[in-house]
Design a protein around this nucleic acid. Structure first.
Lengths: 126, 126
DNA sequence: CGGCATCCTATTAGATACTG
DNA sequence: CAGTATCTAATAGGATGCCG
């Protein structure tokens, strides 16, 4: 199947891409792979995320039906986030992407170094 | 292979995710699938992108070695962007993700409507 | 045509304090 | 513990004009 060649603002796959392709969503879904995890536990997995950003991210994932929020009435209250079947179904494509990053990390790093070097050369000669 | 379970800021796959998982990169790479495309042609494919954002995006892709920039000396000058072999290698995982969006669009939409409805109910009863 | 520089605004993210 | 609310800082994005 060919990919979409014109990404209008109404292109449905574009809209969906925008929902899942942000800074934290992929990582959150990955953390939940093996079962429900509590809020602060997720937070500990994602170095650098603020509680606010994580809350927003989880709300969005919940709204899109990828993640399920379950409140466990206790004192203090516990909240667990788990993948829905829909969220589970997103893991295989994510893993494909993950494997790509592993396989090609070195090449990307090399390209980066090379690019920065050429930039520096251009800057000096100017 | 299990996915990374702790995404430190130094996690290499995290760093790579951040480079490719932004608003325009996926779409740009997709547009270049069948061969080099000129700047304004890419722009026409991506409704809503400004020239500034597109330039930034292309620079990043170039720096990461996914895209190649070729200046064709003419008057006025022409610039073509094409996929490198590395960029090509990213298309299959992207397609997997694309197929997922096609397959699950309806479910996501339904989940969204449902979520918004429940939110509205909660708001009213409060 | 394909940019870059500038300015300005809008959106996002971070820090902090507070609550059930 | 798992948030919400508020304020501020940083960053991204848009508009415009100029240049090779």
């Amino acid at each position: 199947m060919p990919l979409c060649q014109h990404f209008s603002v109404d292109c449905p796959s574009r809209k969906l891409f925008e929902q899942i392709a942000d800074k934290w969503s992929m990582m959150v879904l990955t953390v939940l792979e093996h079962g429900p995890v509590r809020f602060n536990a997720i937070k500990r997995h994602l170095e650098g995320v603020t509680q606010k950003s994580l809350t927003q991210c989880l709300r969005k994932l919940e709204r899109n039906g990828l993640v399920e929020r379950q409140v466990i009435p206790a004192s203090p209250v516990a909240v667990e986030y788990g993948l829905t079947p829909l969220g589970q179904s997103l893991l295989p494509p994510f893993k494909a992407l993950y494997l790509w990053t592993i396989d090609n990390m070195a090449q990307v790093d090399a390209a980066r170094t090379d690019f920065d070097l050429r930039q520096e050369e251009a800057r000096v000669s100017a």
